[in-house]
């Protein structure tokens, strides 16, 4: 099996399986939590969280509302009630702090499907097959969603949004729909092209990507001097174009922070890097002297030479 089909092997060897999958495991737990929390009520009668990802109420005190849906409603001319406004502000503030597309990698149920399809493509050596779309496509779909909402006077994306459809179908026990939506998305992601849905089409991801352009928590290639060019992070990253400016930014005098809003803060690059080049950091720590010197450089040199 070629190296690109099995990225992260070196990290497993170096750090052990658990450490090399730490963020992946935490992320899966988080994704499951965001479904399980909504299922506690219907299954046990204790209503921990009511509603869906679109809008919910936790323990009868904490309202949460998806800001993308809120804004679509706003452009139709409808102003929601206080609870929904508070909810949208809380959610937007949370993603402002934790990273816009943290929604994609830590909350959205579609991510599991997208990750699985992408993993299978890698194993099958299909990485380069399928349709290629420009990275800006999702921004255009997002724009079109707002225009359509305004023109039709409806929350337009919710008529077809597979993200909320899937979550709603799980939470309300519509299992045929769960199968249908996830099957369709899996096929699109598997044969359509690499991450064709999540990084090229989904307007929800594009919206949170915009938030990610200003969000605080960011991945930093703070030990980029230790990078041994194994390319494993590029192989696993769902948005691999975001890495180079930070990891290879030394020659252009760029700081170590991955600034692109496309980065989902999934932390896979932290996992698969045998040299622990990456860490979670803050947007503000992007000075050149925030790059940590390479402690093991001498060893590295000899290793690489050998």
């Amino acid at each position: 099996m070629s190296k690109m089909q099995n990225p992260g092997a070196a990290a497993v060897e170096q750090k052990g399986w658990l450490a090399a999958h730490k963020w992946l495991i935490l992320r899966r737990l988080s994704q499951i939590l965001f479904i399980a929390a909504f299922l506690v009520g219907p299954l046990t009668g204790f209503w921990l969280v009511k509603g869906t990802l679109a809008s919910s109420m936790t323990l009868d005190v904490l309202p949460l509302t998806d800001p993308f849906i809120f804004l679509q409603s706003l452009v139709t001319g409808h102003v929601m009630e206080t609870n929904a406004i508070i909810g949208a502000v809380i959610v937007a503030a949370a993603y402002f702090l934790l990273g816009g597309r943290v929604f994609c990698s830590w909350v959205c149920p579609v991510n599991i499907i997208s990750d699985t399809a992408s993993w299978l493509r890698r194993k099958l050596g299909w990485k380069k097959t399928g349709v290629r779309l420009d990275r800006s496509t999702a921004l255009w779909t997002m724009g079109a969603v707002f225009v359509t909402s305004a023109l039709t006077g409806t929350i337009a994306w919710e008529f077809v949004n597979p993200v909320t459809m899937l979550h709603r179908a799980i939470v309300f026990g519509a299992f045929a729909s769960v199968g249908l939506v996830s099957g369709a998305l899996f096929l699109i992601e598997l044969v359509g092209g690499d991450r064709i849905w999540c990084s090229r089409l989904c307007p929800v991801g594009a919206f949170y990507g915009l938030l990610g352009k200003v969000s605080v928590l960011k991945v930093s290639a703070s030990k980029r001097k230790a990078c041994n060019d194994c390319m494993d992070c590029y192989a696993v990253c769902p948005e691999s174009h975001v890495i180079s400016p930070a990891l290879k930014g030394e020659k252009d005098n760029r700081g170590p922070i991955i600034l692109s809003g496309d980065c989902t803060n999934c932390g896979r690059c932290l996992d698969v890097c045998s040299e622990d080049v990456f860490e979670f950091s803050l947007r503000t720590r992007n000075k050149l002297d925030d790059v940590r010197p390479n402690e093991g450089s001498a060893e590295d040199g000899t290793q690489r030479a050998a």
């Binding site: 009511k50 809008s55 998806d66 849906i69 409603s73 001319g77 409808h78 006077g153 409806t154 929350i155």
Partner: peptide, 17 residues
């Protein structure tokens, strides 16, 4: 109905309560 579709986010809170 037209106003309803500009506001309802399909959260099901009404259903639950």
């Amino acid at each position: 109905e037209a106003d309803f579709l500009s506001a309802c986010v399909r959260c099901g809170l009404c259903v639950r309560d």
